[in-house]
Design a protein around this nucleic acid. Structure first.
Lengths: 342, 342
DNA sequence: CCAAGCAATCGAAGCGCTTCGATAACGCCG
DNA sequence: CGGCGTTATCGAAGCGCTTCGATTGCTTGG
C-alpha cells in the first residue's frame, strides 16, 4: 500500500504539494501536477481513509439509521437505504448502516466517535425517540419523514397535503361531487409516521373547502370490502375514491370493486396517494402519487451535505412534491351514481 | 469532545495507561482502572474512530456489497444486509453499505483506502465478477452464496443439496414413490446465483438413487398451473411435490391445487425447499426449508472476523444446514393416486 | 544486603494525512 | 537596480490514538 510519502518521493516533490495537488485546495503548476498524477497511477495510490479523517476531522461517511421494528416493510426500507447510499456517493460520501433495534445507541456512537460526519434518519415515527436525541447530538442529522415536534430538527418528506389536494382537484375537475378516502388501519395511525393523519386532516379540510361531499373510512383488516361498503353507506352517490392505505388493502380494493360489478373508471374513479410503489409487484391499475424514495432521499442527502460543508444553514422542514402518474383510473363522474344505476 | 489526553490528565496517569486500561492489552491495577473509568464517564469520552483506525491499522468496519440489479428482490436484500449488520455489531464492527451498480469500484475503494477491514459479498451470481476481484484484493472477502469457481474464495451458503435430500427423504418415508420438482424460471437459472441448478442436479441424482419416479419442471411465468399440469402429464401417479421456485409461483401453486380439487396433504404432499420466507406476507401453508439470512449471515461474519483477527485461516466453502419447518403439508401417500381417484 | 524478577506505569515514536506559515524564485515598476 | 507582489513549493506541526521498550518501585531468594 503506497502512502503519500511514496508518491511525493516518486514525483520529486514535498508531501504537502501532493496533498494540495490532489485536493485542489492550493494551486499547483501543470507539470508538477502531471508528475504527481503519474506517480499516483504508477504506485496505485489511494489515501488512507482513517489518516485523512483524522487530519481533516471529517470521515466522509454518513450514517443511516433504519431500525427494524416488526411492522416495517423491509423492501421499502432497503429502497430508502439504497437511495440514500446512491445519493451520498454522488457527493463522495459512504454510508454506514445502523439497523440495531436500539438505533439510539448507534446514533450516539457514530457521533461520539466521529465515525460519521452526519446522520440520516429513516422510517420516522410521529413520536420518535430519535428526535430528542438528534437535538443533543454534535453532528448534523436529517430526518426523512416528519415527527410530531420538529423544533430544531431538519426534515425532508413528501408533500402529502399537496398530493391530497391534487387528488381532490383531479376528481373535482372531472365533476366528482362525492369522494371517499380509504385511510390506514387504525393502529397504524397511532404507531407509524404521522403522515397518514396529516393526509386525513388535509382531505377533510380541502374537500370541505371545495364544497364536495366526503367521508373517511379506516379499514380494520387487509380486506377492503367493509371499508368500501362503509363509504357507500355514508355516501350513496360516491363516484370518486382516494386511497392512502396499505398495499394489500389497495390490492383487495381492486378485486372488491370488480366483485361489486363496479368498473374503474366508468363507475368509480380511483387515485392512490402516497403509497409505496415498491411493494406492488402486481402494479395497481390506479392513478398514483407514489411515495418514491428517489424523490426524498437525494434531497435529504443534499441538505445534509450542505450542512456538513457549511454551505447552507439548517433548513427546517422541506416538502417534496410527488409526481402524478396516470394509469387511466380517473374519468368524468357518471351522470347517475353507480349504485343507483343498477 | 474529550480526547484520551483529557482522560489521562483527569485520572492523573499517562496516555498509554488509559489506552491499556481501555483495551485490556496490558494489566492495569484495579484502582488506576477505576480512576480512569471514572474520568471517562465524567468526560463522556469516546475514542475517535479515525485516530484509532490510523494507529491500529484497522477500522472495525465491514463493507457489504449488495448491488442493485433489476431482478433482485429488495426485501430479501435488506434482510441480508440487516442480518450482516446485526452480526457484525456483535463483534463490535460497523457495516458500510456498498450498493452502487458498480460494486467493483466500491469494493476496490474500501480495500484501497482501508475504509473497511473486510468485505461481505451478497447476492452472489454463478459467474460473479466480484469473485475475480476478491482474489486480487488485499483484504479478506467472504461471499454469502457460492459462485461457479470458488478457487481461493471463502464462501458461506445454505446446504441446498442437503435440503433437497431431506425433502426427498421426508416424502419417501411417507411412502411417496413419485415426486415432482418445481424449479425456477428458465432465465433465472442462467442469470442468478447457481443454487437453483445445484438443487435440480441433486434432486435428480438423489431421487434416482432412492429408486423413486421423478420429474422436474421449469415454470415460464408466475402461474403454477402449466407447471403442475406438466408434472402430472409426466408423472400421472405423482403424490409429492418439492418446490424451489419464486414465491409468486408458490402462491399460485396453492391456489391451483385447490382449483384442481386437490387437497394438501391428503391428495398431494408439498415441501418448499430453499425459498425466502421474508417475501411471503401471506405465509405459505407448506412445509419449508427456508432460505433464512439468520442462518448464513452470522456464520459469514464469524468467519470474516476470525480472518480479520487472525484466529483462523480461510475456510473455503461452508454450508449451513437449513431447518425443517413443518406446517402439516406432508402426509402418507394416498393409496390411489390423486388424479385417478376422482 | 544485593541482584534478580516482576508488576505497573510512563515516554516517545510512529500511523498517514491536512494545513498553516515560511521560503524561494520570478517578473514588474519606479 | 532594489523593493514589492505573485506564484509555486516546502517544512513542520499537529490530528488522537496504539504500542514498544524503558523505568520505577517492590518483593524475593541466595
Amino acid at each position: 500500500m503506497a502512502t503519500i510519502d511514496d508518491v511525493a518521493r516518486q514525483a520529486g516533490v514535498a508531501i504537502s504539494t501532493v496533498s494540495y495537488a490532489l485536493s485542489g485546495k492550493r494551486k499547483v503548476s501543470a507539470d508538477t501536477r502531471a508528475r504527481i498524477e503519474a506517480a499516483c497511477a504508477e504506485l496505485d495510490y489511494a489515501p488512507r481513509a482513517s489518516a485523512r479523517a483524522l487530519a481533516a476531522n471529517r470521515s466522509e461517511v454518513i450514517a443511516v439509521t433504519a431500525p427494524l421494528h416488526p411492522d416495517t416493510d423491509p423492501s421499502a426500507h432497503m429502497a430508502f437505504a439504497m437511495e440514500v447510499t446512491i445519493a451520498a456517493r454522488d457527493h463522495d460520501y459512504d454510508t454506514l448502516l445502523l439497523v440495531h433495534d436500539d438505533a439510539q445507541q448507534g446514533m450516539r456512537r457514530s457521533a461520539a466517535t466521529a465515525l460519521a460526519d452526519g446522520i440520516i434518519v429513516l422510517d420516522v415515527a410521529a413520536h420518535d425517540e430519535r428526535a430528542a436525541l438528534a437535538r443533543g447530538l454534535s453532528c448534523p442529522v436529517v430526518f426523512i419523514g416528519v415527527p410530531e415536534d420538529t423544533e430544531g430538527l431538519v426534515c425532508v418528506d413528501l408533500d402529502f397535503e399537496a398530493a391530497i389536494r391534487q387528488s381532490i382537484d383531479t376528481l373535482v375537475h372531472a365533476d366528482h361531487r362525492s369522494v371517499g378516502l380509504i385511510s390506514q388501519h387504525p393502529e397504524t395511525l397511532e404507531r407509524e409516521s404521522n403522515y397518514p393523519l396529516r393526509v386525513v386532516h388535509e382531505f377533510e379540510r380541502y374537500a370541505a373547502s371545495c364544497g364536495i361531499e366526503f367521508a373517511v373510512t379506516y379499514p380494520e383488516t387487509d380486506d377492503a370490502a367493509p371499508a368500501l361498503d362503509d363509504l357507500f353507506a355514508r355516501l350513496p352517490g360516491m363516484t370518486g375514491i382516494v386511497m392512502n392505505t396499505a398495499n394489500p388493502v389497495a390490492q383487495s380494493l381492486a378485486a372488491t370493486l370488480g366483485a361489486r360489478g363496479l368498473t374503474v373508471p366508468q363507475d368509480v374513479s380511483v387515485i392512490a396517494a402516497g403509497m409505496t410503489p415498491i411493494m406492488a409487484r402486481t402494479p395497481l391499475p390506479f392513478d398514483t402519487l407514489p411515495l418514491d424514495p428517489r424523490l426524498t432521499c437525494p434531497v435529504a442527502v443534499d441538505i445534509l451535505v450542505d450542512l456538513l460543508e457549511g454551505k447552507a444553514p439548517a433548513r427546517g422542514v422541506t416538502l417534496v412534491t410527488q409526481i402524478y402518474q396516470s394509469q387511466g383510473s380517473v374519468a368524468p363522474a357518471p351522470v347517475a351514481p353507480p349504485l343507483q344505476a343498477r
